[in-house]
Write a protein that binds this DNA or RNA. Structure first.
Length: 471
DNA sequence: ATGTCC
């Protein structure tokens, strides 16, 4: 009796690829159990109708694999007759951002989209892009910094202290001593947080590997447009459980650090590998199916990164506020790079917001301006056309490269002085001229959010990019 | 965004 070889399995109708490996691993036991000829006959039956053999004592793993592969193949990209609809809230959107938004709506699983007023070009979906899909999640529609988010804490510090040398020095020292910036930043004296005990850190080998570095980076801010700053919060009317008035507030902007970047990179690469047939302009919009391990894993790890990024902000605020021995009177926080899931008519709906603030009716959020322009505390109006969303900031007016070429600190310093902003450190590519006019962006979204407070930055720390504001 | 290609 000759052995069953790859050629026999292929002849039985099992395609080359992962299913072949699964078949080979089932063969020895099956031959022992059924004999060579019957085993081969069963292989042919399973290849023809795998869904009837999902509980087969010998070939269940193969049958399951074939069913999954068939489902996967059925979902291959097919150009649809017309793209899904979207609403554009960005009057001055660059052509690149519009093209990316339109491309995302060509995906088979896309149901609708919205482009926020601060939109600009990104990878895959534009920054400021909102995309709703059914049954899929798109790593590049969440973004590279998974769960990048805002956190505002209102403090019981006298607002006049922002202009009093003594208090001002204390605030400055709190930022200098209790925050850490830079791509590889680790906290000097390590923090801990219950987010580090989450079971999902062992969900995959990748997550398991990332846990230690994530622990070291807990409570750090990273680089780019991330910041920790003190400013003056003005509430024209009582809200957030506070009286109308002026307050000192701490505002931070950062995400899930190296861990999130690795997870984003891993799953966007995997998604692209799974969709080799996509036209190249859609490659960075490759999706993962939610009824496959890949999509489920990505969602779980994205949510873990949400908890982790939230924990980073919590540690930052705890340390800075603790340094001042101050009390937190109120707070607002929100993700702006994230995918939110819900159920609709029995189908799993995913709203991706990539640089967009969730703005369901009554939902609070923070929309920052720039180091020298105000940010706003907002309450969502829940406009369906915007998919319950708003902008996540002013949006870049120019690329980092262009900003570095066009500006130096001599040009920027007068604006900082005029606005009463003390900048501890930052890269010149983050200067206020590199951003759109936040007032214009807010004016473009009066339908989407109510402004309940204004935050004027006064002491700002960002990642040092080598050059200094004094230079 | 990230020690910036596992």
């Amino acid at each position: 009796m000759s052995k069953i070889r790859g050629g026999d399995i292929r002849a039985a109708g099992i395609p080359d690829g992962p299913a072949m490996g699964v078949a080979l691993s089932c063969i020895p036991k099956a031959v022992k159990h059924l004999g060579r000829d019957v085993a081969l006959q069963r292989l042919a039956e399973i290849a023809a109708a795998p869904d009837r053999s999902l509980d087969d004592p010998d070939f269940a793993p193969l049958a399951q694999r074939l069913v999954e592969d068939a489902r996967e193949a059925a979902r291959r990209f097919v150009e649809r007759d017309a793209p899904a609809p979207y609403v554009n809230y960005c009057g001055d959107a660059d052509p690149g951002a519009l093209e990316q938004m339109r491309n995302s709506l060509r995906l088979p699983s896309a149901t609708r989209g919205a482009l926020m007023p601060d939109a600009h070009r990104g990878y895959g979906l534009p920054i400021g892009g909102v995309l709703e899909t059914e049954g899929t999640v798109i790593p590049y529609a969440v973004g590279v910094d998974i769960a990048c988010r805002m956190k505002l804490s209102v403090l019981d510090v006298d607002p006049d202290g922002l202009d009093a040398p003594g208090t001002r020095e204390q605030l400055k020292q709190a930022l200098l001593k209790q925050t850490q910036f830079g791509t590889g930043a680790k906290l000097r004296n390590r923090a801990d947080h219950e987010a580090m005990d989450d079971d999902r850190w062992t969900l995959t080998p990748l997550a398991t590997r990332l846990r230690d570095r994530a622990r070291e980076q807990l409570g750090t801010s990273g680089s780019g447009n991330h910041f920790v700053e003190f400013g003056l919060l003005t509430l024209p009317e009582a809200d957030l459980g506070l009286e109308a008035g002026r307050y000192v507030a701490l505002l931070s902007h950062s995400g899930s650090r190296g861990a999130g970047a690795q997870i984003a990179g891993h799953y966007s690469k995997l998604a692209r590998e799974l969709r080799p047939e996509l036209p190249k302009e859609l490659s960075y919009l490759s999706w993962l199916d939610l009824d496959h391990d890949s999509g489920r894993e990505y969602l779980e790890l994205m949510r873990l990164m949400g908890e982790y990024a939230s924990a980073c902000h919590a540690v930052i605020h705890e340390r800075v506020v603790g340094h001042l021995k101050a009390e937190v009177l109120a707070g607002v926080e929100n993700h702006h790079n994230y995918a939110w899931t819900s159920e609709r008519d029995g189908r799993e709906v995913v709203v991706h917001r990539k640089g967009a603030t969730p703005a369901a009716e009554g939902e609070l959020g923070v929309i920052p301006g720039s180091m020298a322009a105000p940010g706003f505390v907002v309450r969502g109006k829940g406009r369906p056309e915007s998919i319950d969303s708003a902008s996540h900031g002013a949006g870049r007016r120019m690329s980092r490269k262009a900003a570095t070429q066009q500006f130096n600190w001599q040009m920027v310093r007068p604006v900082l002085e005029e606005r009463g902003v003390e900048l501890l450190s930052a890269g010149i590519d983050e200067n206020p001229f590199a951003y759109k006019d936040i007032e214009a962006v807010m004016a473009a979204q009066t339908d989407l959010v109510d402004v309940i407070g204004r935050f004027d930055p006064r002491i700002v720390r960002m990642a040092d990019a080598g050059e200094r504001p004094e230079d």
